[in-house]
Amino acid sequence: MAMSETTIDKKKEGFGPLAPLREAWRSFAPATWLGWQIESNWTDPFTFAVFNLVRPLSGALILVVMYLVATRMNTRTDLFAQVYTGNAMFTYLGGVLFGMSWVIHEDREHYQMIRYVYIGTSHLYWYLLGRAVAKFLVTTLSVVVLLTAGKLFLGLRLYWSVIDWPYFLTAFSLGLIGATGLGLALSGWMMLMARQAATVSEVAAGVFYLACGFLFPIDVLPTWAQAVARWIPFTWWNEGMRRGLFGHGNSQVLVSLSNGTILNWLAISTAVFGALSLAAFFGAERLAKRRGLLDQITDF
C-alpha cells in the first residue's frame, strides 16, 4: 500500500521550525485517506450498510421498543429524546475507541503496515490520529442517519431553533478530544497484547456507556459510581451536549451546576485525561519497542 513506499527523503525533510509539522502531515494525511477508504468500505456497499446503517439503527430500535414497553408513552417526550440522542452520540465514543485500537490489530496482523509506519515517516500517533479522523467522519454519517430517522419517524423532540450551537459545538469538540486521547491510550495497550483487540475497547466503551450518562442519567447509579463518573470527561460531555441540544440536561444531581461550570469541568477533566492518555500511549509504545512486540502476529 501507499505507506510502504514512503521512505525518508532527505531533501524534502528540510530543517526549519515547520519540519516536524510537515512530517506529521505526511503521516496524518495518508492515514486519514486510507482510514476513510477502509472505514467507509465504499467499495463494498454491503459492508458499509451493515456497519454504518443496519447495526446502529437496530441497536437504536431496541432502545425505542424498550422505552415504549416500559413507559407506555409515545416517543414525543423529552425523556425519549434524551435516551435516543444519548445513544446516538455514544456512537462517536464507541467508534473512535474501537476504531483506533482496531487499527493496531488490523494493521499489524492483516496489512502488516505498522512497521512501515515506523520505518517510514514520523510518529505513529499522527497516523492513529488520521485514522481517528476518518472514523469520526464515518460515524458522523451514521449519527446523522440515526437522528434524521428519529426526527422523521419517531417525532424526536430535537429542534433546530432550540440548539445553542456555540455551546453544543464547544462541548462536543472537547469530548472528542477526550475520546481521541482515550483511543490513543487503548492503542498503546493494544500494542502490548496479542489478542482481544476488539474486546478491550469494547469493555472500555461499555464502562463509559454505563457510567457517564449516555443512556440514563447518572442519578440511577450508586453514589460511589456517581462520584467516579464526575472524574470522567464523558459525563460532562453528555451533560454539556444535552444542555446545548435541549436547553437542559437529564440529571437531577447535576442540575444545580451552571452551563459554564459544566464546560469548565469538561475542559479540566479532558486535559487531565488527555495527559494521562498520552503518557500511557508513549509508555506502552516504548515498552512494545523494547519487547519487540510491534509486528507480532496472532494466528487463530
Binding site: M66, T71, V203, G206, L210, F216, V220
Partner: peptide
C-alpha cells in the same frame, strides 16, 4: 463473563430510569 454484565447493567438501569415494572 464481564462483557455481557455490562449490557445487562445498561439495559436494567435504563428500564429503572424509566420506572419499568
Amino acid at each position: 463473563i464481564v462483557m455481557p454484565l455490562f449490557s445487562i447493567a445498561a439495559y436494567v438501569l435504563l428500564y429503572r430510569s424509566m420506572n419499568a415494572p
